[in-house]
Write a protein that binds this DNA or RNA. Structure first.
Lengths: 192, 192
DNA sequence: CAGTCCATGTAAGTAGTTACATGATTGC
DNA sequence: GCAATCATGTAACTACTTACATGGACTG
């Protein structure tokens, strides 16, 4: 098991996300958590506990350095910087193309799959609730998209914004696709 | 931490999937793995090691029973049956509506998010490769869908088939949505 | 005679989750 | 007075992954 690490570098997603954010600018764990909640949540999320422990571990691995910055009236901040080794790791991962598909997990679909045992009425109510939740998500993404669109020209590095907007476009499409499926499935159950 | 189990029953997805399959008929771990690979993979997958260990644990929890069936010329089979307690657990989970959205994780989107650092050419190649993979998946789902459609009337319990087909419809929509996003993103990068 | 299918397991590790813990400041 | 924000951590656990392990029957 252990010798594999020598041959094939392990790319752990949370590591690469932290390296990605820190390649833009020095940040604290708190900063990264906040940014993730506003930009990557719809395709990758992390709890603060995982972020803090991973940053610590990556500092030991010489991918990052950190300094405590003393604040008055506010808690002190541990600011992380990416090292050359960290930059290399990020670039190595980016350069290596994905040759497989991500696997998708969806609890709702598991429930639907086994819903032959349920009352149609109950399934319908569940799908209607899900539709509400997805509609809320969709409108959040629409707001975010407007915001990104307005900042795309004023930003110093538009490439960053352009690529992050591609991911948001996927968020929008995903929600619309999901709502479409919910609508059609609701109709089909009603007509059963 | 421990007292929570007393108040709030834990619903672990793999448990519920195994209960779901065994509520149709008695099966072995191998059978369930094979069925999952043909029906639930696109929204939930499991390795055989997890299936075997979970079945064992659930037997201890009195949700299942098992008997070894001796075979000649072939390996012996451990056939599992669901108990009344197991049926109750499955039904309790089905009856409790989901009040949140599943969270979605996608490594490709993480890469795209940080692809401002890459050559457009490299990103394009990666997206084109992903397009190929998604197209392959799509055609597998289309075959499966044809198969389900032809069996929907001859099957003893069409409700089962109808609900499982709903999940396949999602698979089809998901792949089409993904390919659409890939096409548009590829075009936008080419025109950059 | 190499490879896949049948069939069932164990061992070891880790990524990620949930809860515990603290405490000053700002705002309704 | 209550809740949220800022800010950083530790402790404990578990769902899931990867690899190890076996061995007969069938197929091209």
């Amino acid at each position: 098991l252990t010798y594999i690490g020598l041959w094939c570098i392990l790319f752990i997603m949370i590591d690469l996300i932290l390296l990605g954010f820190l390649s833009y600018k020095p940040m604290t764990g708190y900063d990264i958590k906040r940014e993730m909640d506003h930009s990557t949540t719809h395709f990758w999320h992390a709890h603060h506990s995982q972020i803090y422990t991973t940053l610590r571990r990556m500092e030991k691995e010489a991918l990052l350095t950190s300094q405590m910055v003393m604040e008055e009236g506010q808690p002190n901040r541990r600011v992380y910087n990416i090292t050359d080794e960290g930059k290399k790791k990020l670039q190595d991962w980016l350069d290596k193309p994905l040759t497989e598909l991500d696997d998708y997990k969806c609890e709702l679909l598991v429930k639907v799959f086994f819903s032959g045992f349920r009352e149609d009425e109950d399934v319908l109510n569940e799908l209607i609730l899900q539709r509400k939740l997805h509609t809320q998500h969709l409108s959040v993404y629409q707001e975010l998209d407007k915001f990104l669109e307005s900042h795309i020209k004023t930003h110093a590095d538009p490439r960053m914004i352009i690529y992050s907007r591609f991911t948001l476009q996927m968020g929008l499409r995903y929600e619309r696709m999901f709502i479409g499926w919910l609508d059609d499935t609701i109709e089909e159950i009603k007509n059963m």
